[in-house]
Write a protein that binds this DNA or RNA. Sequence first.
RNA 1: GGAGAGAUGGCAGAGUGGUCGAAUGCGGCGGUCUCGAAAACCGUUAUCCUGCUAUCGCGGGAUCGGGGGUUCGAAUCCCCCUCUCUCCGCCA
Length: 424
Amino acid sequence: MLPITLIRENKEFVAERLKIKNFQAEDILDKILELDSKKRDIQTKSDALLAEMNKISKEIGSLMKEGKKEEAEAAKASTYSIKDEIKELSEQMAPIDSELKNQLVQLPNLPHSSVPRGFGAEDNEIVRQGGEIPKLCEGALPHWELIKKYDIIDFDLGTKLTGAGFPVYKGKGAKLGRALTNFFLDEGEKAGYLEVMPPIIVNEDSGFGTGQLPDKEGQMYHIELDNFYLIPTAEVPVTNIYRDVILNEEDLPIKNMAYTPCFRREAGSWGAHVRGLNRLHQFDKVEIVRISRPDNSYESLDEMVAHVEGLIQKLELPYRVVRLCGGDMSFTSALTYDFEVWSAAQSRWLEVSSTSNFESFQANRLKCRFREKAGKQVRLAHTLNGSALALPRIVAAILENNQTPNGIRVPKVLVPFTGFNIID
RNA sequence: GGAGAGAUGGCAGAGUGGUCGAAUGCGGCGGUCUCGAAAACCGUUAUCCUGCUAUCGCGGGAUCGGGGGUUCGAAUCCCCCUCUCUCCGCCA
């Protein structure tokens, strides 16, 4: 959510920036300013009347004490019309206020100045590429064939238990997943992230805080009976730890990480191009989350990018770092880097991490603030997060890129975690 | 799931209709004292909205788990919801 003060003071700037995200904001901004001015007008009137009421009430109090009953009664009578006016004003206010909130919540975050213009993935900017694209052996298979060949992941079984997109990992497949999780968490710990194990079901307030609600309900599984949601990413619970919190400046930056399963309904996006592990309803992910000071949040982002890149390099996967264009960015993000690994048998790039700075957009929804050491002012913090990393597509890339006639070679860094160096 | 008790400032804890945004203690911050520190003493110590002010700030409003109600006036009374604790039941 953008601060109303920013819109009041700099409407043109906001509209201009939002064009980068292909969001035509003029109408909605005008509406917001109109509602805001109406609201403040009513508020001012109402506050004056309330002040009058408070004054009279105090007077009645002292009159009663002095035993001047009649004067007190007269004073009481004088409040009735004021009371009616206050009531009327508050009835006018309610719909204006809720509509104002409603409109404010529709505005996406402003993109950072480095975000390129564009409409979709084809307009994203490739920042750099690393690793070597492997030459596959004769008869190389895509991962959905490899998992059958080595019997390590079973989609049909998952379909029986739940439905499409809920794979069952078995044997070395399960162990590989566990190895990756442990590797990611250990690397995160070395980089100074505190491991947390949050709930994977959250309430409505949490969904709102990080921006999944309202409007993006479709992405999440909803438990109607309790009005809870299954998390689509650990970002939701881990960032919401800091909802309604005023931190001390000395506590920043906060660096947390969490391993969780993630659940995505992805309604309507099922199709031939999402075979195998490319897109699932349930998958595992290690997420890193930071709360930073506004003046150095982009340094935080750079550190997170370096961390994620390091993980991929250690896994010896060919990858590229992509700066998302305005049209491909999420609603809440100010700047996002995607990390994609090369899937050799599919000959395509698979997104394995999305690392973003949300600046104060989420913090404003969350009311996540910090107290400045000098000056004692309370200010919105900046929130950031990134996948470090999402497992299934990493698994897919390892399977495809590392396949040999004798089996699948396990990346060296994982061997201490798997206890085996080949899947055969 | 059943019965009972409770939810107050960073924490502990008073406050059951009227100058209560809230006693007191602890903690935090500033100061006096000291070579320095401790102790002692003095002062200060929430958030949001809004008006005025270039700034320090000043004024008004709101906030005592959340929402609604009664009243001239609610932390205090009533209703609903959420959560916590104790006991019982069930249970990894």
